[in-house]
Amino acid sequence: MNQLLMNNQVMIYLLMEVIVSVMLLIALYWAIKMLISWDFGSFSTAQYRLEKRSYLVSTILLFSFVVKFFLLIYFVFTIDSISILIPGAMCAAGVVSANDYGMQLLLTKLLILFFMLLWMSINSYDMRAKNYPLFRFKQVIFLIIFMMVAIEGYLDIEYFTHIDIRQPVSCCSTLYGQLEGSNPLPFGLDIRNLMILFYMIYTLLMVTLWYKYRIVTIVLAVLFIFISYYGVVYLFGTYVYRLPTHKCPFCMMQREYYFIGYLIWGTLFIGSYQAIISSFINLYTKSDILYNERRAMVLLSIFVAVCSSYVALYYLQNGVFL
């Protein structure tokens, strides 16, 4: 019995995951039933009953989304607090990398939130239309969500039971540091080019969102997430920590940095998700009714502003860059 499992927060986290999974299982039963029997044109009582059931599914999904959203934050908090139990770990970065499952778990969580947000946007469009045009599509997305939640559950168990508290882990400086001159940045970029790319994509994204070039927006948004990850870890983060060698995506979520990490990662992900989702839906339904594009623009701008301000502040205070 892994000692970690007895930690208060880990237990609470796992319990919450179980509750959400149980609720989603109930929703799954009905989602499958609806996928099979849904016939909007029908006047039968069975159909009307299904229409009522669809509210149960959407309520459960909304509930799951809200809980999972808070659980992601709670999860990061929790693994940060157990870093004391694992030799060598000084923040969540070390704990996440304690075994292979850690990073996979985190990525799965981010994907699940994306698909849930997608589902909710599709649902709101579906409800506003008068004949549930996206109904079947919605249920398919739900099945994808459920599968991912199942995978997440599996990863949860594997991750927590395979953290060997006797095995020391590397802390963020080794994980993200530049060892022996190897370049961690993708496509062989250097920091300067990464920054140029970062701001360029951001500007392009603002343009494509404003003028509603949907496909380009989706591609750019995905690219932006990718580039921003590297940007935050390898550049902006160092300005948050005021230390050119401190490269870590997690430390900025700690109290000493005023939890700014939550704002930075939050605006990046939610903004990009909104951009992708609203473009996707408008593309798919050939319509123009969602206004999430504006919200996406605002969020992404906040993200870029916050990151840039750390650099600007440092420069203004010290006259040089790190």
Binding site: G41, F43, E51, K52, M127, K130, N131
Partner: peptide, 22 residues
């Protein structure tokens, strides 16, 4: 209530199969 067959048009809007929200 919903009919088993037929149509109801109120103020040019066919309401027999309108979803609950509408």
């Amino acid at each position: 209530d919903k009919p088993t067959e037929g149509n109801v048009i109120i103020d040019s809007e066919s309401i027999a199969k309108l979803p609950d929200l509408h």
